[in-house]
Computed example of a mutant assay.
Amino acid sequence: MLIRTEAPADILAIDRLLKSVFETEAEANLVMALRENSRLTLSLVACTDEGEVIGHVLFSPVMLNGEDYAWQGLAPLAVAQSHQGQGIAKALVKEAFETLPDFGYPACVVLGDPNYYSKFGFSSASEEGLSCQWEVPEGAFQVKSLTADSIQTLLSGKSGVIEYSPEFLEL
């Protein structure tokens, strides 16, 4: 398996993957809109030895109280059903977490299952004084430092609402 940055030739394969993994086309449409509006920070694919795209993860900018601290939002993360349970999602996220700090992105938020995302080092954002712009189940909105600094250090007394790119409002 190879993990790499998405290439233009991957766009339709990513679109097909997302449409096959999620119940609706919302995530596929979101990724396309983020890409078209230049709001995609990092998009990685996992490929088989034959070049088939079997996994995808995307990161886009988020704001804290309308301020840009170069934080990122992870969404979506997808692995082809035929390849799930093989550590592909973990490998994609690990690669992203090694890459993002190199480009000055110190932290990441995610909206998802706390039991799943805690495996990647995410913790409850509400415990750090952060909330999501939408009403979400307790514990589902999570945060992680991507650097040696703790979230508390990165926040340095700040708290408030994390806002995603406008494309997320169209979901």
Rank of each mutant, 00 (worst) to 15 (best):
R4G: 11
T5W: 03
T5E: 09
A7V: 12
P8Y: 14
P8S: 04
A9K: 05
A9Y: 09
D10A: 10
I11E: 07
I11M: 02
I14G: 01
D15G: 01
R16G: 08
R16F: 11
V21R: 11
V21S: 04
V21D: 03
F22D: 08
T24F: 09
E25W: 08
E25F: 09
E27I: 01
A28S: 12
N29M: 09
N29A: 14
L30V: 10
V31A: 08
M32Y: 12
L34C: 13
R35E: 15
R35L: 15
E36S: 14
E36G: 01
E36W: 04
N37P: 06
S38Q: 14
R39G: 15
L40R: 13
L40P: 00
L42W: 11
S43A: 13
L44S: 00
L44W: 03
V45N: 03
T48A: 00
T48M: 07
D49S: 06
E50K: 10
G51A: 09
G51Y: 14
V53S: 08
V53N: 00
V53W: 10
V53A: 06
I54P: 03
G55D: 09
V57L: 05
V57D: 05
L58C: 09
F59E: 07
V62T: 15
V62C: 09
V62E: 13
M63L: 15
M63R: 15
L64G: 13
L64F: 10
G66N: 14
D68K: 00
D68A: 08
A70N: 15
A70C: 11
W71Y: 11
Q72N: 07
G73T: 08
L74V: 11
A75R: 00
P76H: 02
L77A: 05
V79T: 10
A80S: 04
A80Q: 04
Q81L: 11
H83V: 08
H83F: 15
Q84M: 13
Q86G: 01
G87Y: 06
I88K: 00
K90E: 08
A91W: 06
L92D: 14
K94S: 03
K94D: 14
K94W: 05
E95C: 05
A96I: 01
A96F: 05
T99I: 15
T99A: 14
L100A: 08
L100F: 10
L100K: 12
D102L: 09
G104C: 07
G104T: 14
Y105S: 03
Y105I: 07
P106I: 06
P106C: 10
A107V: 14
A107C: 02
V110A: 01
V110W: 11
L111Y: 15
